[in-house]
Structure formats: structure tokens, C-alpha cells
């Protein structure tokens, strides 16, 4: 009887396999695909390089105060101070505000479309939600300032009257217009479609048998939703939410219309009529900026870019951790 380990026969030489493309058309196809992939990475790299190149001077001059300070003075050429603390915090505050408002709406809409609606209604609802994503942000901004602001300011006033004892809803400034709360709503309207569409996709991929199992165990629809559907889809939903967060952070024109930009940092007073947003600040200042100031604005763009990258990275980590059963 021959034993595998004791075999004296030499191991045969490795043979050529068709793992790599050998047909001409395959080579061309691979080449094009690879070029596109490398190109995409290359473009991101070039943008980053340009941002770094243009920002370098500002960052070196202003140091860490660029991120944490609250002053912006371009008037005195001898002593220009560029600090974006309130804008940076404002961008985050508005984005989180938008996400908190958008997520329940988006999940509810996705649940309705996927589990409650008849197929005809589901089609209509999907189209309407997708249409919402197609509205240009300038139009949303105009609607926001002309139609929505008075309404939302009234909601903010009600919150202040009834829940004003909470730090979140106090308003010492008195004005309810131009607040992060209103900007948050505007952002929410803009990110509901993306979160809904990702969540709907996740829901549609759920194993119907797992949901049926819950039903067969005597679960009501709501407890099936809370204890089976949501936990099973959480990773994917977080992914969708972070996609929305990325869009919320970068949103420019619509926020520019509804937000009252202020270099006095507004930590949590979301219904007070002042706030910050890096993107809106860039739009607001760019037209009349001195060359020095333009560099500072580009540096602000770099900071926003880095934060968005960090959030995407965080998204990947959370999605991976939220689904330990997926190998």
C-alpha cells in the first residue's frame, strides 16, 4: 500500500493555467477595466494632492486653530485669521440633525413599500421617493427658504415653548429662522430617498422564511419588525444611513439658502437662528475672497473631505461589526 507522505515519486511541475486573459479581446477588456479602476483612484489622489498643495500655507500659518478657533478676518492683510471651528461643528450638527430626522422616515417608508403596500402602490411610492432624489438642491433650497422656513420656525417655537427646559430646545437669541434645526430638515428631505432605497433593497433581500418563522411563532407584525427585521438588516441600514450622512455633510446650496451663518459657535442650540456649515461658508465667501482667503477656503474643503473619508471608514467598520454572522 502506498502512502502519500512517503511517496518517492517527484512532484510534477506546475502547468500553465488560463487564470490570466490570453485572448486578445479579453486582454483589451481587462485593460480597459483596470484603467477605469486605476483612473478612479488616481482622480481621488489628484484631488487630494491639489487640496493639500493649496491648503498647505493656510494650515501651516493657522495651525490647529484653523479647526478649533472661531474667527475669520481677511480684512487686515498683515494679520489674517482663518478659523473654521463653528463651520465644522455646524456641518456635523446639521448632518446629524438631518440623519436623526430622516432615518425613521426612511425606514418606515421602506417597510411600507416592501411589506405592506400592494405591488401597484409600492411601485408608485418607490417612484415618488426616487423623484424626491431627482429634485435639484437649488430648488429644495428655494422651497426651504420660501415655503418651509416659516413652517419649521413655527415648529421650533412650539418645541421651545413646551420643551424649552431641555438644553437642546432653549433659544436665548429669540430668532427661530436660519437655525440648524431647519437646515437639518432640509438635509433630511434630501437624504430620505437614498436611505429609503438602500433600506428597501436590504429588506427585499431578507430571507422571507426567517420572517415567516417569526410569524409562525406567534409574533405580531411590530415585534417581528423590531426583533427580527431590524436587527437582521441593521448593518445594511447603517451603511445606507452613512451614505446619507456623507451627502448631508457635503450639502451646500440648499443649506446656504436656509441657514444663518455665524462664527459664534452654536454647540447644541439647534433651534436658535445661527449655525455653521463648511460647504455653505465656502459658497458664501468664495466670490469676494482674496487669494489668501481662497486658499483658506480650499483648506476648509480639505477638512470636509477628510471628515467624509473618516465617516466612510467608520461606516465600513460598523457594517462589518453589525453583521458578525456574515462571514
Amino acid at each position: 500500500m502506498s502512502s502519500v507522505s512517503e511517496s518517492s515519486k517527484p512532484v510534477p511541475a506546475k502547468r500553465k493555467l488560463a487564470a490570466k486573459p490570453h485572448l486578445v479581446q479579453d486582454k483589451v477588456f481587462f485593460g480597459v477595466a483596470r484603467a477605469a479602476a486605476v483612473g478612479a483612484v488616481g482622480i481621488v489622489g489628484l484631488i487630494l494632492a491639489y487640496l493639500l498643495f493649496m491648503s498647505w500655507e493656510t494650515l501651516a500659518k493657522q495651525g490647529f486653530n484653523f479647526i478649533f478657533g472661531s474667527q475669520w478676518t481677511a480684512a487686515d492683510p498683515e494679520n489674517m485669521i482663518f478659523q473654521i471651528g463653528p463651520m465644522l461643528w455646524g456641518s456635523l450638527l446639521i448632518a446629524f440633525n438631518g440623519v436623526i430626522l430622516a432615518v425613521p422616515m426612511a425606514i418606515a417608508a421602506a417597510y411600507f413599500i416592501e411589506f405592506l403596500a400592494t405591488s401597484r402602490i409600492a411601485k408608485i411610492a418607490t417612484t415618488v421617493v426616487d423623484l424626491l432624489a431627482a429634485i435639484p438642491s437649488i430648488v429644495i433650497g428655494l422651497w426651504g427658504v420660501g415655503v418651509f422656513t416659516p413652517v419649521a420656525a413655527h415648529w421650533a417655537e412650539l418645541l421651545n415653548q413646551n420643551l424649552g427646559f431641555l438644553p437642546l430646545f432653549k433659544n436665548e437669541a429669540g430668532s427661530f429662522v436660519g437655525s440648524p434645526f431647519i437646515a437639518g430638515w432640509i438635509v433630511a428631505v434630501m437624504i430620505v430617498p437614498i436611505i429609503t432605497s438602500v433600506t428597501r433593497e436590504i429588506f427585499s433581500q431578507l430571507d422571507r422564511d426567517v420572517i415567516n418563522a417569526a410569524t409562525a411563532l406567534g409574533a405580531s407584525r411590530s415585534s417581528t419588525f423590531m426583533k427580527v427585521i431590524l436587527p437582521t438588516s441593521s448593518g445594511g441600514i447603517v451603511g445606507g444611513v452613512l451614505l446619507g450622512l456623507g451627502r448631508a455633510l457635503g450639502e451646500t446650496v440648499a443649506i446656504f439658502f436656509v441657514l444663518n451663518l455665524s462664527f459664534e459657535i452654536n454647540w447644541v442650540d439647534v433651534i436658535e437662528g445661527r449655525g455653521g456649515s463648511i460647504a455653505s461658508m465656502i459658497v458664501a465667501f468664495f466670490g469676494a475672497a482674496t487669494p489668501e482667503e481662497v486658499k483658506a477656503l480650499i483648506a476648509a474643503g480639505l477638512v470636509l473631505f477628510v471628515i467624509t473619508l473618516l465617516i466612510n471608514w467608520l461606516a465600513a467598520v460598523i457594517v462589518a461589526k453589525a453583521q458578525p454572522w456574515r462571514k
Binding site: D207, D209, V210, A213, A214, A216, V228, T232, W325
Partner: peptide
């Protein structure tokens, strides 16, 4: 059910 369907989470 036909296919084993434990709750994956």
C-alpha cells in the same frame, strides 16, 4: 419550515 431558518442575529 423546509429550509432551516434560525434567526441569524
Amino acid at each position: 419550515f423546509q429550509k432551516p431558518n434560525p434567526f441569524p442575529t
